[in-house]
């Protein structure tokens, strides 16, 4: 049996039910099957598919990716074929895999989220991840994520239209994460996922122009990890809902750290580009860590450190 299927890695808190705590972060794993030669979908507890919007989008002008110390900045801009195509084509091949499927939905206006929820209801997906934190949308996106009022409206509207469990992907740019989470939880949220990328700009000093075609992009990678862990720690104070932590997960050690801070599961994003086979490695590393540290179940790691300072 692969470590990814070991029952000791099972995650079960509220609506978050996963065979292991390793997810793929939206936008870094395509529609789940492209990398299966080297990164099989069944190695994951869940796969967050590439973000979708109500209508197809061609995305931002290139260049869309640039490096910075300890990470990368992307401005892909949600290039996708829209929710209809997603339901009709993208989800179908994934049904046969033993993993959970997460649809990441994005809107430029509140109603976009609601209408996508309607379209997704009845489709074979396991979770809807409401993305209110994409920095690459000129309207909507991350602006919703900073406002408890917008979040309440989006989550309640989506909740009314679907029975699929709801995740909310938060921006690190929050002023008060407690307020944001409360607004979502009061309106039917099931799971908190954080963090999305940090807005960032790189300028070419020779051309004196921004490197990215969209000028600004979102920064991700190992450099953001300590900030992401700080926000998981704060989110744990705000809610008893399950938390999926992400931001610079590059190894099983990073996964453990997120979990010690309070995450029930973690997602790998940028590091898929560097090490596509990382999910299996994390699962194997978690098993060895549990054996060495006397944890019977992976859920015992969750919040282990956090509790010593907060209970």
């Amino acid at each position: 049996m692969l470590a990814t299927d070991n029952p000791r890695l099972r995650v079960s808190r509220g609506k978050l039910q996963l065979k292991n705590p390793v997810l793929s972060a939206s936008g870094t794993f395509g529609y789940g099957t492209e990398l299966q030669d080297i990164a099989h979908p069944e190695h994951y507890g869940g796969i967050a598919l590439k973000g979708i919007t109500l209508k197809p989008r061609s995305g931002n002008p290139p260049p869309r990716l640039v490096e910075a110390v300890g990470g990368v900045i992307n401005s892909v801009g949600l290039q996708n074929d829209g929710v209809q195509d997603f339901v009709e084509k993208k989800v179908i091949p994934l049904q046969s895999y033993n993993t959970t499927i997460i649809a990441n939905i994005n809107g430029v206006q509140l109603e976009d989220y609601w209408m996508m929820a309607e379209k997704l209801e009845g489709s074979p997906i396991d979770y809807i991840e409401i993305n209110v934190s994409c920095p690459n949308l000129k309207e909507g996106g991350v602006e919703f994520g900073k406002s408890p009022k917008s979040i309440a409206a989006i989550v309640s509207g989506v909740r009314k239209r679907t029975t699929i469990p709801l995740m909310l992907k938060l921006t690190p740019q929050v002023t008060d994460i407690k307020e944001i989470i409360k607004a979502a939880e009061d309106n039917g949220l099931d799971i908190v996922t954080l963090i999305n990328t940090y807005p960032a700009i790189v300028i070419d000093i020779n051309t004196k122009k921004p490197v990215l075609g969209n000028i600004r992009g979102g920064f991700s990678g190992p450099a953001v990890k300590p900030m992401a862990i700080n926000l998981v720690w704060e989110a744990r104070k705000a809610t008893k809902l399950p938390i999926v932590g992400m931001g610079g997960v590059c190894s099983w050690q990073d996964a453990v750290e997120f979990m010690l801070a309070g995450a029930d599961a973690v997602a790998v994003g940028t590091w898929h580009f560097i090490n596509p086979g990382i999910a299996l490695e994390i699962a194997e590393g978690l098993m060895a860590y549990m054996d060495k540290n006397g944890f019977e179940s992976v859920s015992e790691i969750t919040g282990y450190t956090w509790r010593q300072y907060n209970e």
Partner: peptide, 8 residues
């Protein structure tokens, strides 16, 4: 990024 068509 990925080199394999997923990150766009």
């Amino acid at each position: 990024g990925c080199g394999a068509g997923v990150c766009l």
